[in-house]
Amino acid sequence: MKLQLHGIEKSFGALKVCRDISLGVNKGEMVCLIGASGSGKSTLLRCINLLEPIDDGKILLDGVEISDPDLDPQPIRQRIGLVFQSYNLFPHMTVLDNVMLAPRLIHKTSQAELRDQAEALFVRFGLTDRIGHFPDQLSGGQQQRVAIIRALAMKPEIMLFDEVTSALDPELVGEVLDVVRQLKSEGMTMVLATHEMGFAREAADKVCFLEKGMILEEGPPEKIFAAPREARTQEFLRRVL
């Protein structure tokens, strides 16, 4: 199994955000986390990327625990890409520099090679005409695609997407989801927190419904969406669909 979560607990002060979350993600699999805002989806992703330390439980990547607080989180984060709802591009750099910054600082490859690799990514995701622009010169959809490319430039083994289409105008959602589809077809292991139920139903291998920091129900999308077991899941789906 590529990624395993065992009994993850996380609180912010008195507020419990993740309760005993366990989850397994196979290589090449795409898992969608659904649930109301505040159900703990985003926090869970931030915990997997080690942006938030967990209070209890274990996170395993390729069977090796990465949640050990004695480990240096930096090399681990380099293996796990995270894309944010609000893109979080660096506004003072061109799109190309955004993408090249982390590889340049971390991988000791030559500048020319790094540039070739970065440009190849832009070609792959159809953004070559934008590499010299600054983020604020791009549409939201383009910025989010750049953010995905930036995460991919570190050659991560797994990608986490935190509601990456929630900040976008409806007409721009499609181009970002297309990128995710393309990644899936290329065999990337992915975990998405999403409100795009249609997309989750169509593309996910597994769907998890979270409420109050717990995974209430999980299963293949056709089962979750067509015949949810839990009353809470049914209620949630009735509201959003």
Partner: peptide
């Protein structure tokens, strides 16, 4: 911005 940089492993 810090989160984004950290998530890239900086």
């Amino acid at each position: 911005q810090r989160s984004a940089a950290k998530s890239l492993g900086l």
